[in-house]
Design a protein around this nucleic acid. Structure first.
Length: 627
RNA sequence: GCCUCGGUGGCCUAGCUGGUUAGGGCAUCGCCUUGGUAAGGCGGAGGUCGCGGGUUCAAAUCCCGCCCGAGGCUCCA
């Protein structure tokens, strides 16, 4: 097996110092310098042949094209193996590599063999600059140390289509996107990866200004602090998804956030994603922080006694948190974090027929969940990704998803299966910077039941391996909030009042007394409303009424109630309704009784979770957390 | 990780072709104002100008190194 440490470098300088073996090559002891090249620290093992060397160079050539380099240096490097080839064979193969490379039009150099050399080198910093390869003839490309999954992904050949609701598959480049501008943006983002924006995403300013969430400089990047209002909103969102999933039949569990690196069932799964976890050392054991809820649930299912009678069987956890150590440059506000909250419901199914039925239910569940966050089908785009084989056998099923969705969808088709799933779909949100990211998703997993030893017993008493569906009906909660804030920003830009859905607004009703002589009345009103299960506060600060209204508007409070002499005398409230556009400002004021206001709010928030306000009801008692 | 941009009281920011006590706005504190649907007035306090080094008579300002952040590339189970 030829092993190569392959380094895309700015330069190398090397100088032979003394012979290490008697058969060392003849050479001058002077320093040589080469610039802008790929260095191949190469180790030749027993059994390698010149053909192995040529094969290695074929791989190198592909790489050179990718990184746009033209020069290589074959540098003998014995330290990559403990079963080295005989020096004479090794030298022959190394020279073969050099000359073969030259025959391919590559400028190829070789460092002298058998010498102790000193060297200085500078490696370029891009992601592909450092690679390790090992080449054997029997198994082309096999035995590579770098992640198989990441490798596989590079090789994946994708074919892109848009599918119409009538089932026609149209190659993306031929599709007429008029009337589907958002889908166009999404497709552009996915395929051509055009990204221009050079500004902070709008939701980042909003999340801080509204005192919802903020960066935490004392933590690792991508780990956020949640202020009281943000925690309240997030907690309601979490509760909402959980209630939805339980109604669908999910059994909620809770599992550890860290797992043993060496656990046999996990290591296999894990080694597909090297260097992306947080590692935690405790005594002399290494743990990783989970990057999804799969582990805990699969381990529970592994130990469970499951009968075919119980299928489909749904198991659910909302992870707070899942951890993914994304590269620092990939992080972006609430859109992409290193720790995030993820509802994850798995269903184990006996067969494809059951999978299909279950899949449709979860598709609807996901639509309903996003709907609850105020995201309608106009706000996101469907992508469906599958292998060619799966599509050929299940065309109707795939099309039925699109039909149910009711809009054309983006299709990615793979020639072969490189992942553990044969089909997945996502709902993708496109933000104000034209960047897309996945919210809800579901996958058909045909691999992990076996990997984790999950079985059910069928009607004949035989152990069977099920299929597993992985669904997050909302996607990461943080990302839902990101989508809501981005949507609100867009509303504002287009002249509509930005706001969160009523059931998620931290303050639903703000009472503003006209003067401090009405403070007692304001407080009484607030308390009556609070007693009915509505989040209400009142502004007792020494400010003008106009000022208080302005600040309430800037907090996106849906109902602002002014209390003064008129209201006390008539018993009718003056309610400023945020949903009524500011164009005809006087139209914003609605006259209604306390009971009418409360029943309107109850009505509009029906079926959604409620939590009481977790801040003092008197504004003067609240600290300012940001700004 | 690389590239680009940035870091000035809690927040936003002026100053940055080097030169008085670093200027303003918001918030905070105090006083006045008691108001009818998006900013009432006056005053006070609050600053290691990210960190370290260098150049200079003199550095927030110029140079070097580092730290942190954002965006882009890449990546996205």
């Amino acid at each position: 097996m030829v092993k190569i440490l392959q380094l895309h470098s700015d330069f190398i300088e090397f100088q032979p110092i003394e012979k290490e073996i008697p058969s060392a090559e003849k050479c001058e002891k002077k320093t040589r310098r080469l610039e802008d090249l790929v260095i191949l620290f190469t180790c030749v093992e027993e059994g390698d042949t010149p053909q192995t060397g040529r094969e290695a160079i074929n791989g190198v050539k592909e790489y050179l094209e990718k990184v746009k380099a033209h020069r290589i240096l074959v540098y003998p490097y014995a330290h990559l193996s403990n079963k080295l080839a005989r020096p004479s064979d090794a030298l022959k193969i190394l020279e073969e590599m050099r000359s073969y490379a030259e025959s391919l039009g590559i400028e190829a150099h070789r460092a002298p063999f058998g010498w102790c050399k000193k060297f200085i080198l500078s490696i370029k910093g891009h992601p592909l600059a450092e690679q390790f390869r090992s080449i054997t003839l029997e198994e082309k490309g096999g035995g590579e140390v770098i992640s198989k999954a990441l490798k596989a992904e590079e090789k994946v050949k994708s074919h892109w289509y848009v599918v119409e609701i009538d089932g026609r598959l149209i190659p993306v480049e031929e599709y007429d996107f008029s009337g589907h501008e958002n889908l166009k943006k999404f497709a552009d983002y996915e395929i051509s990866k055009i990204r221009i924006a050079q500004r902070t995403p709008p939701h980042v300013d909003l999340m801080r200004r509204l005192e919802l969430v903020d960066y935490e400089p004392a933590s690792d990047p991508g780990n956020f602090r949640w202020y009281p209002k943000g925690r309240l909103v997030k907690s309601l969102m979490e509760q909402f998804v959980t209630e939805k999933v339980i109604a669908y039949g999910g059994m909620e569990v809770e599992t550890p956030i860290m797992y043993d690196f060496e656990h046999p069932a996990l290591s296999n799964y894990l080694h597909r994603f090297p260097a992306r976890q947080y590692i935690l050392r405790s005594d002399d054991k290494d743990f990783f922080l989970r990057f999804s809820a799969c582990f805990g649930q699969f381990l529970i299912l592994h130990d469970a006694q499951i009968s075919y009678r119980q299928l489909p069987l749904r198991i659910y956890e909302l992870t707070r948190y899942s951890f993914r150590r994304e590269k620092s440059g990939e992080l972006s506000g609430l859109r992409r974090l290193r720790s995030f909250t993820m509802p994850d419901v798995h269903a184990i199914c006996a067969n494809m027929k059951q999978v299909k039925e279950e899949f449709m239910k979860r598709f609807q569940l996901s639509i309903d969940t996003l709907e609850g966050f105020g995201l309608s089908r106009n706000d996101y785009e469907l992508a469906i990704r599958f292998t060619k084989d799966f599509y050929e056998e299940n065309k109707d099923f795939v099309i039925s998803l699109v039909k149910k969705f009711g809009k054309p969808a983006l299709i990615e088709m793979w020639d072969e299966r490189f992942f553990y799933f044969v089909l997945k779909w996502e709902f993708n949100f496109v933000d104000n910077l034209d960047k897309a990211s996945a919210l809800s998703t579901d996958q058909i997993d045909i691999e992990n039941a076996k990997r984790y030893g999950i079985f059910y017993v069928d009607e004949n008493g035989e152990k069977k391996t099920p299929l597993i569906l992985h669904c997050s009906p909302s996607g990461a909660i943080e990302r839902d909030l990101y989508a809501m804030l981005e949507k609100a920003y867009r509303d504002q830009m287009e002249g509509r009042p930005p706001m969160l859905p009523l059931w998620l607004s931290p303050t639903q009703v703000r009472i503003v007394p006209v003067a401090d002589s009405f403070y007692a009345e304001a407080e009484k009103t607030a308390e009556r409303i609070a007693g009915c299960g509505v989040r209400v506060d009142w502004d007792d600060r020494p400010l003008t009424m106009q000022r208080k209204i302005r600040e309430a508007e800037m907090e996106w409070i849906p109902y602002i109630v002014v209390v003064g002499r008129k209201e006390v005398e008539s018993g009718i409230l003056s309610v400023r309704d945020r949903r009524i556009s500011g164009a005809e400002r006087s139209g914003k004021i609605r006259r209604m009784s306390l009971e009418e206001l409360i029943s309107e709010i109850k009505d509009l928030t029906k079926g959604k979770p409620f939590k009481p306000l977790s801040l003092p009801m008197r504004l003067s008692k609240r600290p300012r957390f940001y700004g």
